[in-house]
Design a protein around this nucleic acid. Structure first.
Lengths: 242, 242
DNA sequence: CGTAACCTTGAGTAATGTCAAGACTGGTGG
DNA sequence: CCACCAGTCTTGACATTACTCAAGGTTACG
């Protein structure tokens, strides 16, 4: 169907302006839809990636395995994200992408993506901006992991997830929630699962969050943000208005 | 003079192919040359950046200040890098860029850069790739800070700097070296300067590096890389051949 | 030759990791 | 419907890494 890629279009339009021809070209991209179970790989480190995947439903994360076997989650991806721009354009994947939940995605051949970028400057610009924002998020993660203590780090991640999910949920009408295990949270923050557990308990005792049936609910977003030193500027959500 | 932007061209051509028109357009970009003393700002967090700066000589770094006053260096920039793509296209700078050494740079108005990207798909693609590589480096830094201990982290940074400097020095014929203080190294690695000092001593005792007059010399690159768990794939230096 | 910035080192402290055991949860098959 | 099982969560005791504070040494530069 023609509106499968709508989600990608909606996302890109949050930061770029398209004319009718651009929109038609984007929605006209060839693709195949695939579904994946939790834990399955979209791409493995070291592989050649000839497709770009647009996440339609569900969540994914990027990860690197370091020498001693440790894992670091380096990014989270939500529906609408084009998760394989990086690995696809850089050809040899320098990290893996894995499904966090069950996902559906649209796979677009690299050549078609490059072709549309060459023909439609506005679309090329939109993808470029998207990449810049991903970089901006990565830099914030560096600051988060490098210079904040465990409690702030965790609070910051919770704030980021809340904001990004809000945007996605608003776009889709759903109200998804991110079902990460404490081990995964730890791997995203450079902490051990045990310590994540303790910090969650701390945040809960402070009345900032609640935990029910393995999902985390933010009770006091204002205070959580101040604990986390969280400012959403780095997500560049309102680029059109700047 | 017309070859001031040569350095940028050389860098982009490492990863993209241009025809004569593309090269002429790039070299024809309007710019003004500026010099900056060590420690001076190219852009400050929160400011609006209307220029993109191409580093011609010297080094710079990007940094974020977190809530409690701590500083995290999130990226290093070497000659040839277009250091303000991010802040310039995202309009409001979400981090600062500061001169590490005395630098000279070419400032290109944002509108001209956007214009050339819209007119020359190959150039737009080259900038996009460049941004992707910056993101790839950021992700490696996340893994480095999040999942390696202090000694590995430091060794990894030294390996990265060595490789990147080698590329730049080969391009320019110089043999620059990165004069970071131990405090700056610590801020790049999420460590305190005191601990950086101890880890340097450790690496020196192991015969991996030597220190003379405040510069670090790598004595055993092979062993240092293995200590660091360093693989240069994430720098994507050989993209044309992949 | 004096000064400021930087480096070096030691001693004590705080944050986070490690190991291990038990409790909970959700799904599966009998 | 129940029992079981694997995966996850929770907690405690202890180990280790990295941080803090502080003092003295070194280097570059005016």
């Amino acid at each position: 169907m023609t509106d499968t890629l709508q989600r990608l279009l909606v996302k890109l339009k949050r930061r770029s302006r398209f004319d009718a021809a651009d929109e038609a070209a984007l929605l006209g991209l060839p693709f195949t839809v695939k579904t994946l179970e939790p834990g399955h790989y979209l791409v493995r480190q070291g592989e050649r990636a000839d497709f770009t995947c647009v996440l339609l439903e569900g969540f994914a994360y990027r990860q690197k395995i370091v020498g001693d076997g440790g894992r670091q989650i380096i990014a989270l991806q939500v529906p609408g994200d084009a998760v394989e721009l990086q690995n696809s354009l850089l050809k040899i994947a320098d990290h893996s992408v894995q499904a966090l939940t069950a996902i559906t995605m649209a796979r677009i051949p690299r050549v078609d993506l490059l072709d549309i970028a060459a023909r439609c400057p506005a679309i090329a610009h939109a993808f470029w901006l998207d990449t810049l924002v991903d970089g901006s998020i990565a830099w914030e993660w560096i600051a988060n992991i490098g210079r904040r203590d465990a409690q702030m780090r965790l609070a910051h991640l919770l704030c980021e997830c809340a904001v990004r999910l809000e945007v996605v949920n608003a776009a889709s009408g759903d109200s998804d929630t991110l079902p990460m295990t404490q081990e995964q949270i730890g791997d995203a923050l450079g902490l051990t699962p045990v310590h994540v557990n303790r910090m969650l308990k701390l945040l809960e005792l402070d009345g900032l969050i609640a935990r029910r049936a393995r999902t985390i609910v933010i009770l006091d977003a204002v205070r959580l943000r101040s604990v986390a030193d969280f400012q959403s500027a780095y997500l560049h959500l309102n680029l059109l208005e700047d």
